[in-house]
Design a protein around this nucleic acid. Structure first.
Length: 575
DNA sequence: GCCGTTTTCGGCCCGACTGTTTTCAGTCG
């Protein structure tokens, strides 16, 4: 599936939302939504199908959609879309981000109150204008206000994946603009791999900063502000940028200084003092003269410390570990030998089983674990027992066809509100592994949710606890639970905890990874893959690194033979 | 807008929860 399919799917989806709000025929909207899903799941390039004139053979795509898609392939848009877009107030789409507001309610707000943006909606709420509308009330109004507040609070934040993409784009532009000898470095929290970012920091080593004015004139950047001689603020693509400047070439001290964290640097400064050294944002000084610090390694070397990777530079504790020579040997992507938690078209993935296998082989993995949704996850076409049987047959066939990779058969089983898994033991027993995940009933009390998950961990068939906190970064807060109690139970029962590598989740949080490591609970870095791109687990690995994890702490760093052995013994089932 | 026929139009994915109602519509996973 190409990105072109994703692009078209996004456009069709937007069309569906706009139609649902503007028009009264929901089914026209639904047809576009359905088509979006079909295009997204399509295994080949949609425009190749269009070129063959075979679009109408796809389910949910008739004459009109076939014509529109064909036009889109040639022109990047189609007339029906443009017509609707002209009639649709731009700011209205933002409203869908507010929890509890769907197309129906937005339609009412638009028609009854003429609301077309978040700002207008907030104002209407503050004037109590929502409570009189049919279907709305005080609670809804308060919930909306809370949602707007939440959005505003997080509006300046980006997922790390998005922030890195922006940082790369910004660096590319600077490189094109600047003479080749100018050095540009990403520093700050983003370099230390925080899971969400409110800004990005760069260090530029150069004399002349007039290039920034030129970029502002060309509207590539905006809000240019000189805070001090060596600190400039600006906006790039709506994202806040702090640009620090240094003039000394081949000097890594400012890189270290601006990468932080503040606590980390303070610890280094304190250590330097004891050694008769001084650290500033300009360099390392001994008796008022600068020392050579061409690399960060040389900086740490002057302090008698081994190199500390940026992602570890947080609380300052890492400096003490470095002093004792006890820094972790951090996991790398190369250490990951196989992937679990992969969805296929059998539930809500877009890849068929064979496509998944090709992807895994192409990426050099030694084993994979298929885990589609279970029967309760109706919205995700969760597998029923009879469909499981069909999948098993397919797995057996693929094992024969692709002996170069080990294929494990698993399930992502819903953890039901009472803590039970979604299939009886006689079915669960047949899987090589079982991931248990919460997908519904999030609003339980802390005690209830903890009990629910503990009961799931007590189930002998559960192998991995999936996305343990359920958080969606910048989207949904984690559910209330006692992570300490969960980890204790996991340790007691030999269970594995997932580190969901999806950039929206990164769950287990890196702060808990360290705890899991201390408790010797294996962490599995899982892609939760629904499409080929999701096989990229780099953000999961970075989270693991930030959580001090070493290869020995990570379950899927086991090699093929080691994994075979574990799978044959299934220690999580107990004695 | 699509589909499957009862060929020319009516029906179109589940279930729990919430907040609104006073029996249900909208949202969410």
């Amino acid at each position: 599936m190409s990105t072109r399919n994703e692009e078209l799917a996004a456009l069709l989806h937007q069309m569906a939302v706009m139609l649902e709000i503007l028009e009264d025929n929901d089914y026209r909207a639904r047809a576009y939504a359905r088509a979006a899903g079909v295009v997204e799941k399509l295994q080949e390039d949609v425009c190749a199908v269009a070129a063959r004139g075979e679009l109408e053979t796809l389910p949910g795509i008739g004459k009109t959609l076939a014509r529109n898609i064909t036009t889109w392939c040639k022109q990047g848009t189609f007339q029906d879309f443009e017509k609707v877009k002209i009639r649709f107030p731009e700011g209205l789409l933002d409203l869908i981000k507010i929890p509890g507001l769907g197309p129906k309610k937005i339609k009412v707000l638009y028609r009854a109150l003429g609301i077309t943006s978040l700002g207008e909606l907030e104002y209407a709420c503050l004037e109590n204008r929502l409570i009189d509308i049919k279907g709305f009330g005080l609670k809804t109004q308060e919930k909306i206000l809370k949602g707007i507040d939440h959005l505003k609070q997080f509006a300046r934040f980006r997922l790390s994946s998005e922030a890195y993409a922006l940082a790369e784009g910004f660096q590319r532009i600077l490189r094109a603009e600047l003479p080749s000898e100018v050095e540009i470095y990403l520093v700050g929290g983003l370099r230390r791999f925080q899971e969400i970012a409110s800004d990005m920091d760069f260090l530029v080593i150069c004399e002349d900063i007039n290039f920034l004015k030129r970029l502002e004139d060309r509207k590539i950047i905006s809000n240019l502000k000189e805070i001090s001689r060596n600190h400039i603020m600006l906006s790039f693509d709506g994202f806040h940028v702090d640009l620090f400047r240094s003039r000394v070439k081949n000097n890594a001290a400012p890189i270290l200084f601006y990468t932080g964290s503040k606590t980390h640097v303070e610890k280094l400064i304190a250590r330097a003092e004891k050694l008769g050294l001084k650290i500033t944002n300009e360099g390392f000084l001994k008796e008022e003269s600068f020392l050579e610090t061409p690399t960060e390694e040389s900086c740490y070397d002057l302090l008698g410390l081994p190199y500390i990777p940026p992602e570890l530079r947080e609380s300052g504790e890492e400096v003490e570990f470095a002093e004792k020579g006890q820094l972790p040997q951090l996991i790398t992507e190369k250490d990951i030998r196989g992937l679990f938690h992969i969805h296929t078209v059998a539930s809500d993935g877009v890849m068929d089983l064979e496509r998944v296998i090709h992807e895994a082989i192409a990426r050099g993995y030694e084993y994979i674990g298929i885990a589609d949704h279970s029967q309760s996850a109706y919205y995700a076409r969760g597998l029923t027992p009879d469909r499981l049987q069909a999948q098993y047959k397919e797995i057996v066939e693929m094992r024969r066809k692709y002996p170069q990779v080990d294929i494990y058969w698993g399930i992502e089983s819903d953890i039901l509100p009472d803590g039970s898994l979604d299939f009886p033991p006689e079915i669960l027993e047949r899987f090589d592994f079982v991931i248990g995940s919460v997908h519904s009933h999030f609003n339980m009390s802390k005690a209830e949710m903890t009990d629910r998950l503990i009961k799931a961990l007590e189930n002998p068939y559960l192998t991995i606890l999936g996305h343990p906190t359920g958080r969606l970064l910048l989207g949904r807060p984690p559910y209330e639970l006692s992570m300490e109690k969960l980890l204790e139970k996991a340790a007691e029962r030999g269970k594995i905890i997932e580190l969901n590598a999806h950039p929206h989740r990164l769950d287990l949080d890196w702060r808990w990874c360290r705890k899991a490591r201390e408790m010797k609970i294996p962490v599995s870095i899982n892609p939760d893959a629904h499409k080929p791109h999701d096989f990229d687990i780099s953000y999961g690995v970075m989270t693991a690194r930030k959580g001090w994890l070493e290869p020995r702490n990570v379950w899927n760093s086991l090699n093929r033979e080691e994994m075979r052995l574990v799978m044959s013994r299934k220690p999580w089932r107990g004695a």
